[in-house]
Simulated assay, not measured.
Amino acid sequence: MLTLTRAKLSRGSAGEPLPTVFKSLAGEGVHIRRGQLTLIAAAPGVGKSVKALTVALRSGAPGYYASADTDAFTMYLRAGAMFTGWSTHDIENAVMAENTAQVDALLEAKSNVRMDFAGRIELDYLEQDLYAYAATYGEWPHFIVIDNISNLESEGEGYQALEASCDYLHELGRKTGAAIIALHHVTGEFDDGIKPVPLSGLRGKISKVPELILTLYRNAESTRLFVCPVKNRTGRNDSSAQWQVPLAYDPSRMRLADISTESEATPYG
């Protein structure tokens, strides 16, 4: 057992934010932190996978991404667009023409982010991957993305399984010190993706365990993606989702950025 001051000294990296990607969120005290569970929830197609991929690849941190919800080719197109400024259609044309050297060179620089594309995230295989990662790099990944939590193997059914998955991921964050980022769905009322999603709009009652919960929606023109910090144990939050932080969004180029930096030229570094 430890006193609180001893706990502070022994915490290691737990609680430290991942390197800042979105200054507009960080400025409001909204950080994805190591050793903690972050939940990102939105309707299908709104951009939760794009947000997670942007954090994964632009933070510069080494990590692991379990992509059960998005196939390998789609993820390549998205990442390629993100780092070249081309559209995903342009990237696909380059693949068909076998002219991807420029894209591959940019993405190879992000090889410390390892990805798995199994359609079902089985716990034994997940843990094997993480131990293999640690053996290869000499440390646990700094973040672990689960895309999405419904694809994670768990005991029980329905809401019980979701709660068990949250408990498992919370413990995984404590064990590895990694920032755990799990993607999740919302209830049918918010499936249009164009209105704010409150904390009560999460599918299943799994809001108790995560330290940070972000819900997302887009405007009708899809030029803005709004992030609603509906739970944040270490900073500002609003469970009703009436407080939102807008980000500039270009879905064709997978460009997600602070409004103040949307005029900056791509590619990203």
Rank of each mutant, 00 (worst) to 15 (best):
L183R: 00
N112D: 15
L106A: 03
N99K: 15
S200M: 14
I213Y: 04
N151I: 00
A79G: 15
T215S: 04
A179K: 09
R34N: 13
Q102W: 03
M75P: 04
A182N: 06
C166F: 05
Y137C: 15
G29L: 05
M1P: 14
K205F: 14
L256F: 02
R114Y: 07
A248K: 07
L123R: 14
S165M: 05
R114P: 00
R6Y: 02
C228I: 04
E153T: 04
G45V: 02
Y64F: 12
T187R: 11
L130P: 02
G204S: 11
G12H: 09
E155D: 13
I213V: 11
E221R: 10
F83W: 06
Q102D: 11
F117Y: 11
E163A: 07
E211V: 06
W243N: 00
R255A: 03
P267A: 03
N232M: 13
T54L: 10
L130F: 15
F143A: 06
K8D: 15
Y125K: 12
L53A: 02
M115S: 02
N232G: 08
G63Q: 03
L39E: 01
G173K: 08
I121G: 01
E98V: 09
A42P: 01
G80T: 03
R78F: 10
A56S: 14
R253I: 13
G156N: 13
V186H: 00
G35S: 06
V245Q: 02
F22Y: 14
I213K: 07
F117W: 11
E139M: 15
S263N: 11
D90P: 00
D238S: 14
D129R: 13
L106K: 07
A26P: 13
N148H: 07
E189F: 13
C166I: 04
Y168L: 00
K208D: 12
V46L: 11
P229Q: 11
N93W: 07
D90I: 10
V227P: 12
N219V: 13
K205P: 05
K175P: 14
L107G: 08
L183K: 02
G12S: 15
L162Q: 03
G188D: 12
L126T: 03
M96D: 15
R203M: 06
G12R: 15
A109E: 10
A79M: 14
W86K: 14
M75A: 05
W243C: 01
E92G: 01
A135T: 06
V95I: 14
Q242E: 07
